[in-house]
Every structure is written in C-alpha cells, then in structure tokens.
Design a protein around this nucleic acid. Structure first.
Lengths: 223, 223
DNA sequence: CGACAATCTGAATCATAGTTCATTCTTGTA
DNA sequence: TACAAGAATGAACTATGATTCAGATTGTCG
C-alpha cells in the first residue's frame, strides 16, 4: 500500500478550502465580486495562486460557491420564516421586512448579490437566487389565497414583482457609495413593504384580516 | 488655405457615424451587448476597426451611446403618455402597460437594456435609465396623490418599486431563450399591472375613480 | 530512513478583446 | 496637377487577469 489520505490531512485540506472560501467571501463583502481576483483571494487566504486551482476548477466556480453560500444563508432565514407559524399575511410581512432589513444591514454584500455588475456565470447564480426568492413568496401567497387572506392572483408573477421591487427600491440607497440608508433605512423599508403588501391586495383587504400571532420584534407597518 | 471640411464630407462623416451606431444597435438587438464587439461592429458597419476610434473614443462610449439612444426612445414614449391628458391613474395605467408591452415586443433589446449582464459603464447607464423611469412614475404619482386618486406615499420609493417589479417579473420570460411570452405575454402584463396598481393603492380605491379618457387600444386591466 | 505520492508554489504563459499607429487612400485648394 | 491635410485601414500591440506547470515541499508507509 502506497499512500492513504489521513484524517489530519483531510482536515487540513478542508480547512484550506474554508480559508479560501472565507477569504473570497470577505473580499466580496468589502469590494464586491469585482474585488475577488484570484491573486487577491490567494493572498488573503495565505496560499499560492496555483493552490486555488487545486480546490476550485476555475474562478467562476469559486465565485459561484461563494455566491451560493452567502445567498443560501439569506434564503434559509427567509424560508424559516415562511415555514414558521402564523397567518400567511403575517409571514409575508415578516419575510419582506426581514429581506429588506437584512439587505440594508449587510449593505455591500447585498449589493453584490443583488445588483453589482457581474459576468454571466454569476448572473445565472443570481437568477437562481431570485427564483428562489420567488418560490418562497409564491408559497406564502398560495397559502394566503387558499385561506382567503389575499385575492386570487398569478402567484408566480406576483412573487417576481416582489422579488424585483425590493432590491430595486433599495439599490440606489444600496449602492456602495450611498449613505442614504444610514438614517432613512427604516422608513424606506416601511415604504417598500407598504407597496408590496398593497400589491398582493393586503392593505385594503375586502375582509379585514386579523393577524393572530404578531411576532415579537416585528412591528406592524404603519397603516 | 489648405483644407476645409466641405458639407459633403461632413455629411459622409455623419453618415458613417450613423452606420456605426446602427450596426452596433443591430448587434445588440440580436445578441445583446455581449455581441457588440468592436471587430463585429466594424464589420457590420463596413468600416475598419480603427475607424471606430475616429468616431468614438472607446468601446464603452460607443455602447453607452447605443444604450442612450435606445433607452431614450422608450423613455420618450413613456414621458409622452405621462405628460398627456387623462387622470393620473389612467396615465399610470397606460404607462405601465406600455412599458411592459413594449418590453415584451422588443424582447431581446429589452433584455439587453434591463437585465443582461453588462460591465460597469453600461450598468451606470442602466441605472440612469431606471432612475428616469422612476421619475416618470413619480411625477404621475405625485399628481395622483395631489388629486386624491392615490393615497399619500413616498413617491420615490414607490416609483422605484414599480421600476423594479416590471422588469423582474418579465425577466424570466424575457430571457432570450425563453418563449414563454409568445403566448402568455398579455396575461403576464396584466398580472404585473394588477400588482403595481394595487401597490400604489389604486385597485381598491377609497373613492371610486372614474377615468374620463380611456385610450383607444389601451384596454382596462381586468378588475 | 528512503521512495513514492500528494500537495503547494508563483513566475511564466495564455486568452480575449480593446486599442494603437504607420501606412495608404481621399479630399480640398492653389 | 501638385501637394497638404484629413480620413480610413487593419495588422500589430497591449492590458488585464485567469490559468498552467515544472520544480520544491510535505506527508505516508514499508
């Protein structure tokens, strides 16, 4: 027997892989995907450029992986809320607020995920990201329609509208150089929510909807 | 006296410039900005590569110019409607429908303007484009709020929401390979409008709004 | 330890596409 | 027609940044 990868080596490899991904993620968080150049990633991760290619077949794959990890984190948060307890309208509200608020908080990263000019590979990843957003919204919408909380609509289109409205409304303010959100962030989020909730037909509902479980720390939007 | 640019030469120069811009625009309309490579543009325009640089300082400028021309055409159509006669709600409706419908018709070009991955220069141009959209929407919204047709809102955010919702809802279907809109186009447009109009607070208005001048060929959206 | 395999290194290479510029062709005036 | 200046040409150049790979290092096992 000639060679066998020991656990300690496997661990070190995994560790290096993480280091690389973390380095890349940090660069993206600081300067967007444009800042994630292979040389920089390598330097920040403390390895040689060539080493990156022992872990990822190409820059595109590395960046995609970063994109997926970061976006998965967001999606999980939202999916958790979507699948949680509460009326559809309460969950929709919570999901929207969370989405927008987290984007405002993680400004640069959100910009990178949602709006930064990227090449086709990442654009594809971004499309998937938005589609998943759409699915989360659709799910809630379907339930809300079934329960009579929302009027019947094409949920896919409606979900896509929401998925587009939020980032776009935030983008100007979200752009790395803008500091608009530092102060007005909450107000902007409220306005966006008003629009989206009204868009699905909620704010002026035919039947007054009672929301049985308002979440702590999730204040109602202004009427 | 040695040399003077005659009218006929000036005309030829202007003509060449137009040829170049048209060639570029056609390439963009066929394959997006990605297809607008200098060599290709030159070939299509029937000039040498170097000649392009006698008319435009860089590829970026050439592409920006193309972007501006194409988007200006769209903006003018919308601005015309916005400044035309009719209640704010009627104009808003008309503008939204026109925006969406034209995007569906001019599929590839719309995709290039709204969603194709482009580099930073064009992304800037695109941001301006969206901002102008926003301004058109804001204008109508302000008037509608003043006249009591819409509830009071932050018009900038609301306008941005609309400007984001429409393209995003169209993008999946708008993507060059998708043929979804060939049949379902109208329905999708209707759904998007429903969302946006409801979003501004219109579809279930406090006071029933009568639209005095419904435009020919601009059917009302389904109730 | 010695031999072999896996891993790492980073300067050199490559790929792409935009840009340049020495040269040629056209146009305007004397 | 001669000649100067503008315009056009397109092959060569360049800039950027990803990718490679021959050699060095580290790890495994008899």
């Amino acid at each position: 027997m000639a060679y066998r990868r020991t656990d300690s080596v496997a661990a070190r490899l995994a560790d290096t892989r993480r280091h690389i991904l973390n380095a890349a993620r940090e660069l993206v968080a600081e300067g967007g995907f444009a800042a994630a150049q292979m040389t920089e990633v390598a330097r920040k991760a403390g390895v040689a450029t060539g080493t990156l290619y022992r872990y990822f077949p190409s820059k595109e794959e590395l960046c995609r992986q970063v994109f997926r990890e970061v976006s998965a984190r967001e999606m999980n948060v939202l999916a958790g809320i979507a699948q949680g307890p509460g009326t559809a309208s309460a969950r929709l509200e919570s999901v929207l607020r969370t989405f927008a608020t987290r984007a405002v908080r993680g400004r640069r990263l959100a910009f990178a995920l949602l709006a930064e000019p990227v090449d086709v590979g990442l654009a594809e990843e971004r499309a998937r990201f938005r589609r998943t957003h759409g699915e989360i919204f659709s799910g809630i919408l379907e339930e809300g329609i079934a329960s009579g909380e929302f009027p019947a609509r094409d949920v896919k289109v409606t979900a896509a509208c929401i998925a587009g409205a939020i980032p776009t409304a935030l983008i100007g303010p979200l752009a790395p150089e803008s500091h608009e959100l530092d102060e007005k962030g909450e107000k902007v989020v409220d306005e966006i929510m008003t629009f989206c909730l009204a868009g699905v037909g909620l704010l002026q509902p035919r039947i007054k909807v009672k929301s049985p479980e308002p979440r702590i720390g999730e204040p109602r939007i202004r009427a």
